[in-house]
């Protein structure tokens, strides 16, 4: 098959881990749908991007000084399609980005997000929800690049994996020299519901600047036994209890979706998948 590198981590590591690059079918990259957006200075915008059919979507955004954007990107592709998507954002001085991304569909998908905190005091808050089941393959590469002074970047990732799904999440905080007093935070929590899962995480932190605060944390595991026990003591079956815990884990992201109908759609989609476990 004809494969091509779609995304790479900013700093390579051992090849045997297979995390250095995401490779996708060349055909998928042939035709892209591009969306170029400029948020004018001092403006506040909200945007929703939905992927529901086979596609390669690219969203390029520039957020002007003091402007803010809330971007919600929902990937709800059918289970038999492949998909790639890409978000590139540049933030000017004091600009703000709130990115809410949900990746629940597609047979196999790769996504890359590149956020450049260029202007001083710009801030990006990224919340990502991914969910994998069956034999699906999930590949994500998120990079937050801190250039300006006093920039803030938060990357919070909530994942659930079941069936024989395979996932790679790469999250990079890259503090460039001069990003004085920047603050970066990255967290990934993964709940794994079945033994057939392969779960890879690459939390990268790069720094050429001393006057920064960077933290990352990953936790991966099955659901806390005590928590399950507590719920079961209230009458829930093991299956019900696990579902409830997973739903609770996703809530921080779901709550950020403004459109009630969409939130419901995702919620019931995940519930349905859990039922079919």
């Amino acid at each position: 098959m004809n494969k091509e590198i779609f995304s790479e981590i900013p700093m390579r590591t051992w090849n045997w881990l297979g995390v250095n690059e995401a490779v996708v079918d060349k055909d998928l990259l042939v035709e892209s749908q591009n969306l170029d957006i400029k948020i004018e200075a001092d403006h506040q915008e909200k945007m929703l991007v939905e992927y529901r059919k086979e596609s390669y979507g690219i969203v390029n955004i520039n957020i002007g000084e003091n402007a803010s954007l809330k971007l919600t990107q929902l990937q709800l592709m059918p289970q038999d399609c492949d998909h790639v998507n890409e978000i590139n954002v540049v933030l000017e001085k004091k600009a703000r980005l709130q990115l809410v991304a949900v990746e629940t569909g597609a047979k196999s998908f790769a996504s890359k997000v590149n956020i450049i905190l260029k202007g001083d005091k710009s801030q990006a808050d990224v919340s990502l929800l991914y969910f994998g089941d069956g034999d699906r393959s999930l590949d994500m590469n998120y990079v937050l690049e801190f250039q300006g002074r006093k920039t803030v970047g938060n990357l919070e990732v909530y994942g659930g994996l079941m069936g024989e799904s395979q996932k790679i999440f790469r999250g990079t905080l890259d503090f460039k020299q001069g990003s004085k007093q920047a603050k970066g935070y990255e967290k990934e929590n993964v709940v794994v519901l079945s033994s057939g899962v392969r779960n890879r995480s690459v939390p990268i932190m790069l720094s050429g600047e001393d006057d920064v605060v960077g933290n990352h944390a990953v936790s991966s595991g099955k659901i806390n036994e005590d928590k399950l026990h507590y719920l079961m003591s209230r009458g829930l079956s093991p299956a019900e209890a696990r579902k409830l815990v997973l739903e609770a884990a996703f809530n921080p992201v779901l709550e950020l979706i403004d459109d009630e109908a969409l939130r419901q759609e995702i919620d019931s989609y995940i519930k349905e998948r859990l039922e079919n476990e």
Partner: peptide
């Protein structure tokens, strides 16, 4: 100082659902 570099590049590759893996890293002065 601000002319030096410090990079952190961990990878976790976990199969199965019974593993308990935690990773924490900080960077700063």
């Amino acid at each position: 100082d601000d002319i030096s570099r410090s990079d952190t590049l961990p990878t976790m590759d976990i199969e199965g659902d019974e593993a308990d893996i935690g990773h924490e890293a900080t960077i700063g002065r």
